[in-house]
Design a protein around this nucleic acid. Structure first.
Lengths: 235, 235
DNA sequence: CGCGGCTTTGATGTTCATCAAGTAAAGTGG
DNA sequence: CCACTTTACTTGATGAACATCAAAGCCGCG
């Protein structure tokens, strides 16, 4: 279950939080303390839903640790995965400033910790701290841009190209390693690249046969990165 | 060619600009005058390129009148159309705050007027006017959200569903009429929905045969909107 | 230890891209 | 303004890419 981690108010941990630099770099110590007292850290186990589309937006949320997927449920009960991302991308917050409710659901692919600050407080900070506002605009833009860019990259490729791209994405962006534990099922990869899970699996098998990857369940090793890059480029 | 419309500095037209409410509603008259003197209106003829991907971003741009397409050139010399939009969507500006150069190209589908304000000035306004900042965040979020939403809607449909969706999009969002002049070629629709132009044309022909639309060149009339909506939903 | 969901593979059919060839429309230069 | 060129549109035929269906094995979880 979700665990609420109590913040120790005596020594505000935000002051030295490694993430302060990225999100709250423009706040002075006084404002940081206000945020710190208002914030709430929530821990989610792998598989837990952080919020559902349609839920009211109360908080500005950012991922401190873990890995999450942002997705939308289609009419047919399928999931469309929009992005899979590490800290510090505010995946769920792009619409927090112009809508009342979440448009997309967010769930934890690994055990994750989310830091939550009431959205009203963030609004107040924007109102009185221009540097914070500018910083935030930049971060939100980057988040949206990443989502848009991913969708453009995916849609210009065929099945094999999409899988190659996704494998390189996990390897380069998410895990920074050629060997990694896939955080998603084959079905979820299918939901990310808009292909059928059967064909995703088939392509994995082909890549394995061709010596491009070594796959054992969710453990993936990229064996021939050049070949994979070629497939990703011309696919 | 591009025409620069000189601004009459004696009586700032921004004060009464119908768009002021949407973009600059939080600026007092003094700030509006500063923007007004710094801004530059540019008129683009149908077909003209407003900016190219890779160009340096000097200005914050917003569309006053007309219709534009945002697109990206792929490695194979093809165009991927990201969105087609009317005022007041800041299609080109989502990355103005975190990058130096445009990621995507923008061109005019109809004669268009773009209002340009140096991005530095916008930054200054954000710094000293929190309400303006909050407003801008909301607008930028909405713009990005529209792009993301369009891509999700498109990618969950098959060929016929995509075409039905696009026709309804033009009819409902862009022209607000059942009869309209398509602002794009069949090829451009193909580039928007990631299908081949031959199949886009074929589907138009089928819709015509089935009495769903009346199409004469670029003039389109939606004859059976119910059927089109059914195709869009289950396609 | 049994059940349900994920994975795997093969077979089959549908959807869509590609190729080709012809027509219409829209620029372009003399 | 007309001949010419190019670009857009249209349709049919073919094959490739992908979805779907089905059956069997596997794995994790209660």
């Amino acid at each position: 279950m979700t665990t609420v981690v109590k913040t120790n108010k005596k020594s505000c941990s935000c002051l030295s939080c490694e993430l302060r630099e990225l999100v709250f770099s423009s706040l002075d110590d006084e404002d940081i303390n206000i945020v710190c007292e208002a914030r709430e850290e929530r821990a989610y186990a792998r598989g837990e839903i952080i919020h559902r589309e349609g839920d009211l937006i109360h908080d500005f949320k950012y991922l401190k640790t873990g890995l999450v997927k942002l997705y939308k449920s289609t009419n047919e009960g399928e999931e469309q995965i929009i992005t899979i991302t590490r800290p510090l991308e505010f995946v769920s917050n792009t619409n927090a400033f112009h809508e009342e409710r979440y448009r997309y659901s967010l769930s934890a692919l690994e055990d994750s910790v989310v830091c939550c600050v009431r959205i009203d407080l963030i609004r107040q900070l924007i109102l009185r701290n221009g540097r914070f506002a500018l910083n935030l605009i930049s971060l939100l833009s980057k988040t949206s841009e990443n989502i848009i860019s991913l969708s453009l990259e995916i849609r210009q490729r065929n099945l094999a190209g999409r899988i190659a791209y996704v494998l390189l994405y996990f390897s380069n962006e998410i895990f920074k390693s050629r060997i990694f534990e896939l955080p998603v099922s084959r079905k979820e990869i299918a939901d990310l690249i808009s292909m059928s899970s059967a064909n995703v699996i088939r392509t994995f098998s082909e890549f394995r046969r061709d010596g491009i990857i070594k796959a054992n369940g969710r453990t993936i090793e990229i064996a021939d990165i050049q070949k994979l890059e070629v497939i990703s480029r011309r696919g």
